[in-house]
Design a protein around this nucleic acid. Structure first.
Lengths: 170, 170
DNA sequence: GAGATATGTCAGCCATGTTGACGTATCTTG
DNA sequence: CAAGATACGTCAACATGGCTGACATATCTC
């Protein structure tokens, strides 16, 4: 992997120059990859009169049913006022229901309704389509590399939270 | 699409289920990786009273000096009215200058001023710090995998434009 | 019973995107 | 050369989704 470089430039090829180009390549690909992936669902969302903020909430609730409001706040890293607006709309459209926490009655556990689940599945299908095409083209080995680099971008303090999404809730 | 859902049902772990989990893992890591990386520069930007929109413009102008307004519009995929506001602010603060295109006098070529370049370099340093830490942890092989997957996420129609960022302008 | 915590909500502000309409300079082409 | 296309700028109005600050309620913990 020596040849990530841009050879034609300095023949001595200072490591600093190579490094900058590698970093910029990552920044750009991350930007375009992320924005183009999210674009994939905008049309579907617009049909429902919803925005990306709604999708993020739907996504995480689908991912971890019975998530509490507080946990969702930590995942999204926004204020409760902002989230409140979104959750209220999802609730008004019967996409999300809440129930009182069984252990701590102050908590509200979030869950998708049937129609909420259907909508999330439709949106997810778009993401799946794009991402699996990219996975297939790149190959399995690249996919694990992709994951490793991204994991390294998540600050230590958030990492456990992200990993926990893959566990079933108790 | 009902069958993809999460099957505590199938203990045999259908390939379909694994696929969903791989896709969700990618979606989440991309979300957290991207947002946390961009968070890295928010504080620096806030000091200057600038926002992310300004940074995106600065970044691409730094990346490809003498970029035209039209090229920048295509990269950012926003309306000229939105970009106009941002460029005006950057110009008012003496971070960006324009000159008339030498071949086509309708065009305006964008370039950073000295102070614009300094600011962009400071912001880039933050990105470099985060990304290179992630690169080092993941290893060079992972980095190329990371690039490959992301390239696959960029639609065919945009890919050339993205690759051209790595070329010097004529 | 006092204080901390989880949640909700009112009110207003800001950044950054959108559409639609229109103006000017310059290039291209019949 | 005249007519139309193109590159850029700008006015006005509006939507989305963040933010701060302040305050209320229910519930848990000590």
């Amino acid at each position: 992997m020596a040849d990530i470089s841009r050879p034609s430039a300095s023949p001595g090829a200072s490591p600093l120059f190579l490094r900058e180009d590698e970093i910029r390549r990552g920044v750009e690909l991350l930007y375009f990859g992320y924005t183009r992936l999210t674009n994939a669902i905008d049309q579907e969302l617009a049909k429902q009169g919803l925005g990306r903020a709604h999708h993020r909430a739907l996504y995480f609730i689908a991912r971890q049913p019975d998530l509490t409001v507080g946990e969702l706040l930590r995942l999204l890293a926004i204020t409760k006022q902002s989230l409140g607006r979104v959750l209220k709309e999802l609730h008004d459209r019967d996409l999300v229901v809440t129930k009182t926490g069984p252990l701590d009655r102050r908590q509200k556990l979030l869950r998708l309704t049937d129609s909420g689940g259907t909508l999330e599945a439709e949106l997810f299908a778009q993401l799946r389509e794009r991402l699996s095409a990219a996975y297939v083209t790149a190959g399995q080995e690249s996919v694990t590399g992709f994951w490793h680099v991204l994991e390294g971008l998540v600050p230590e303090s958030d990492r456990q939270m992200v990993f926990d999404l893959r566990k079933d809730k108790v």
